[in-house]
Nucleic acid binder design. Structure first.
Lengths: 223, 223
DNA sequence: CATTTCGGAGAACAGTTGTTGACTGCATGG
DNA sequence: CCATGCAGTCAACAACTGTTCTCCGAAATG
């Protein structure tokens, strides 16, 4: 398959990428809903009208950006969650992975964090879709872990969601820590590590029936 | 103090509030960075130029909105965190409080969620400031709890941050659940309750030295 | 080699934007 | 009661927006 992609289609992909790159750079200082079509084409070095050869609208470009930012992240998720490390080493590895990903693709991370609750519906939904996929994948990874014996599927998903949200919070913190301040980076790393550690402890004792307080699982007492 | 606020200043506050309200409504479908000055004045029913009598710019208005959305929330935080309930009841109460607040002020919640990572720097920073205050207050509340004996101040703050982030995640989930679907609301409530429960369990066992795994607190082993 | 396809450029369109200066009318304080 | 202060209006500005239609040149197809 794939006959080396003729000159014509190659050029098209190239300018399409130029549009995506230009948009991503412009989005570091504003939200997608204020990004103008002309603004993007100007930064990409093409005529405004040529934009329509690649995207129907800026919204459309935004959806494409979501795919670019999150689509390639799934394998990473899978390999991270399915390693059989001890808890403490897995935490360090996960945080290191987040940190290096933020370093490698800061604009992508910023875009996702910003538009996750942003003003453009289709983009918001595309992000939620990807995050839901992440949650499902993490949940599946957790299910394969022997430490999850006795867990209901619902509980696994709620833990997965906790992990995914925590991942985004941590990524966002790394983003705010300027590259010039490694001390700040360290502070964030240690904070995230302790939060993951606490969640891990909660996970380990989830099925306990502990001492003086009431039952940890099962139905709620009141209502 | 306060001599009933003369007719003139009362009118000024009234149109200022009209501007804030109009902006907040317009912001349900877009981000602040794309909100136009004329757009706001049009919706508020005043001339564009009158805007400058109240705010220097739309950014300025955004900062004012942050104060309106989060400023009045501090007492609620304090009373919630400092009740001496048992864990399970406290969880139910906290989630109920979040749900009813989202119901009462959906536009404010949406605004905060959207602009927390949004494209307008001063607004972003105003929100982060308020959230940092929340974290500090929750941390202080936790410190007064007898269950926090033996905790370092740093660890208390990391737990507080976990709670605050979790609060925002939950509020955002309630926001997405349409008012017409009470079943969805219930699902979110139960999800949030279990997540808080898990965090609570982690909190209870934070200082344990549990079984086969390595020390839960103290310095990190490697590096 | 002839024809078709198609990414891109250019000009033009009706609207909209933020900001200015000079103005009006009315509540305020002496 | 009169003079000042000030919220709000109005007209005008240059600049910018998204979208349309027409055209060009070169790659692709046969």
């Amino acid at each position: 398959m794939s006959h080396t992609l003729g000159v014509r289609q190659a050029q098209k992909l190239k300018t399409r990428q130029a549009l995506l790159d230009a948009a991503l750079e412009l989005l570091e200082g504003q939200s997608l809903s204020s990004l103008g079509l002309r603004e993007v084409t100007r930064a990409a070095g093409i005529a405004p009208t040529a934009f329509y050869r690649h995207f129907r609208s800026v919204e459309d470009l935004g959806v494409a950006l979501v795919e670019e930012a999150l689509g390639s992240l799934h394998p990473m998720i899978h390999t991270t969650v399915s390693t059989t490390d001890d808890g403490e080493e897995r935490i360090a590895r996960a945080i290191g992975l987040i940190a290096s990903h933020v370093d490698a693709h800061p604009a992508h991370v910023r875009f996702v964090a910003r538009e996750r609750h942003g003003g453009v519906r289709p983009v918001r939904e595309a992000i939620q879709d990807q995050l839901a996929r992440f949650t499902a994948e993490v949940g599946q990874g957790l299910a394969e872990d022997p430490r999850s014996a006795g867990w209901s599927e619902d509980d696994l998903l709620m833990l997965a969601q906790l992990y995914v949200d925590q991942m985004l919070v941590t990524a966002s913190l790394f983003l705010e820590a300027p590259a010039t301040a490694p001390a700040e980076r360290e502070r964030v790393s240690r904070l995230a590590a302790r939060q993951l550690r606490l969640i891990g402890i909660g996970r380990r004792h989830w099925l306990d029936v502990d001492g003086p307080s009431r039952a940890p699982a099962g139905d709620t007492p009141g209502t």
